[in-house]
């Protein structure tokens, strides 16, 4: 991991720890003989903040030490340029967006329709050419899920306008 990444991650974790600690202080701490619901989260939040701060301090110290021999700083890269250079990252982002749509769709289109559509989408996204392969694969996944979860495990899944 680069020093820059360590500084960024330590800062985020410190803020998260402090935020959690601040929120946890809303809960009663009560007494030593009868600890309240805030004791454990406050202790953990405090400990996380300290550890993250320690890691941040270490990273800053390392950066200071490495500054002289460091390569010249690169100019900031725009998001568009970054995704052009890293098409895989863009694919991952598109998949996350597709997943969000899939979960939202489950309520009104039903589990099986939305799962079918999502599986076709995911299959196409992962370098599949043509439509028949993804469609057949998605149908297979739907049938498998139906047999396993509905027939065997007797679970209920969200139903939509079709089924």
């Amino acid at each position: 991991m680069t020093i820059r990444k360590e500084i960024v991650s330590s800062t985020v974790l410190t803020l998260f720890g402090l935020g959690f600690l601040g929120y946890a202080l809303k809960y009663p701490l009560d007494t030593w003989a009868c600890p309240g619901p805030g004791v454990f989260p406050v202790s953990v939040g405090g400990f996380l903040s300290l550890l993250s701060l320690w890691q941040l301090a270490q990273a800053l110290r390392r950066r200071k030490r490495a500054k002289e021999g460091e390569a010249p700083r690169k100019d900031p890269v725009s998001a568009r340029a970054f995704f052009r250079e890293n098409p895989g990252e863009r694919t991952a982002l598109v998949l996350i967006a597709g997943f969000v749509v899939y979960i939202l769709m489950m309520r009104w289109a039903g589990f099986f329709v939305s799962t079918f559509l999502f599986a076709v989408f995911a299959s196409r996204l992962s370098e599949s050419r043509g439509w028949w392969g993804p469609i057949l694969l998605s149908l297979g996944i739907d049938v498998f899920c139906y047999l396993l979860f509905i027939v065997w495990l007797k679970l209920n899944f969200p139903e939509g306008f079709l089924f």
């Binding site: 997943f99 589990f111 999502f118 694969l137 979860f149």
Partner: peptide, 22 residues
């Protein structure tokens, strides 16, 4: 190919998670 594996893994993750508590 990942094009066959990834959709299966994704759907199994979603279904398995949902099945735990509906």
């Amino acid at each position: 190919s990942p094009k066959y594996l990834l959709p299966v893994i994704l759907v199994m993750c979603a279904v398995g998670t949902y099945a735990d508590n509906s």
